[in-house]
């Protein structure tokens, strides 16, 4: 107890620089929010992937909470991590149902393939492996969640392909297998300027280039112009489940949303299709809802 693992902790003292301004922004959004500590910590965690010690100190100073309270909450919940996590988070369910269906063997296989134990992160910072105790999907066990994607009835043989797919990204679309995929050309509904970027191709076709804005950060986002393909690239990583604002790179106006996504409720972003019609895509990362209105 007490001072036992000082040495162990010093290794984990964050080397990564954190931006106090970012933390202050999060805190400002929660000002006057009684008992908002958990939501503050959740936002910090979604920004950095973990809770940096310095960030917790800033939260303590700004909210007047004592450091032990914040540390107690941060260590109480499994979803909070004080150690930096890898780019891909793998959660293997070890609940009773998954356990009797062979989850321990799945975890063994994951540990072997990754060369780490549960709760650790690979040296190349690609994967973090964690176990949890029930996802409520017991009939589908063993369940493994990778980057928010759920995989049911996982066997040892499926682990390697799943890891490879995770490195590739689950959002990529396999082309050539679907006859419903066809290229479109779009332009901004505000200024009419073409959004096509011939200089950079995705799926072998010119990409659609827009500016996205998230957390006061702007950057480019290139979407595949193939209708039905979800492949894209972006200037900065957009966390799963985040809603971003879409702006036209020419007129800097926001692409005005006129309807909400029928699946997740986020605003649908319209773009004019050359030749008539409007294509709408959901502004939430990970939501694949889209529609094409031909006039």
């Amino acid at each position: 107890m007490g001072q036992g693992n000082i040495a162990a902790h010093e290794e984990n003292v964050d080397v990564e620089e954190i931006e106090p301004g970012d933390i202050l922004k999060i805190l400002k959004a929660h000002q006057g929010d009684v008992g908002g500590l958990i939501s503050i910590l959740q936002e910090i965690q979604s920004t950095y992937g973990y809770l940096p010690a310095e960030a917790l100190r800033i939260v303590g100073r700004q909210t007047g909470r004592s450091m032990v309270d914040i540390y107690g909450v941060a260590t109480f919940y499994r979803s909070f991590s004080l150690k930096p996590r890898g780019r891909h988070l793998i959660c293997a369910c070890l609940g009773t149902a998954c356990h009797v269906r062979g989850a321990p063997r799945v975890v063994d296989e994951l540990e072997q393939q990754l060369g780490i134990k549960a709760g650790q992160t690979t040296e190349d910072k690609e994967f973090t492996l964690e176990t949890l105790n029930c996802l409520g999907a017991c009939a589908l066990g063993p369940v493994v969640v990778i980057d928010g994607h759920y995989f049911s009835k996982v066997t040892r043989a499926r682990i390697r392909p799943l890891l490879d797919k995770a490195l590739e990204g689950f959002d990529t679309t396999e082309l050539g297998k679907d006859s419903r995929i066809f290229p479109i050309e779009v332009s901004c509904p505000h200024c009419g300027h073409s959004l096509m970027d011939d200089g950079s191709t995705i799926d072998g076709h010119p990409s659609i280039k827009v500016t996205i804005s998230m957390d006061h950060r702007d950057g480019w986002l290139r979407l595949s112009s193939l209708y039905g393909s979800y492949n894209f690239s972006s200037e900065f990583e957009v966390p799963h489940n985040t809603v971003v604002r879409f702006l036209c790179p020419s007129c800097r106006e926001e692409l005005p949303s006129t309807s909400d996504c029928s699946t997740c409720g986020a605003p649908m972003v319209p773009m004019l299709v050359n030749g008539g019609g409007i294509v709408k895509v959901c502004s939430r990362r990970g939501c694949r809802n889209h529609m094409l209105d031909l006039i």
């Binding site: 000082i6 902790h9 540390y71």
Partner: peptide, 13 residues
């Protein structure tokens, strides 16, 4: 569950 200082280092308080 255990009792101790945050991060197991000397507490400023």
């Amino acid at each position: 569950r255990s009792i101790g200082t945050p991060f197991d280092i000397k507490s400023e308080e």
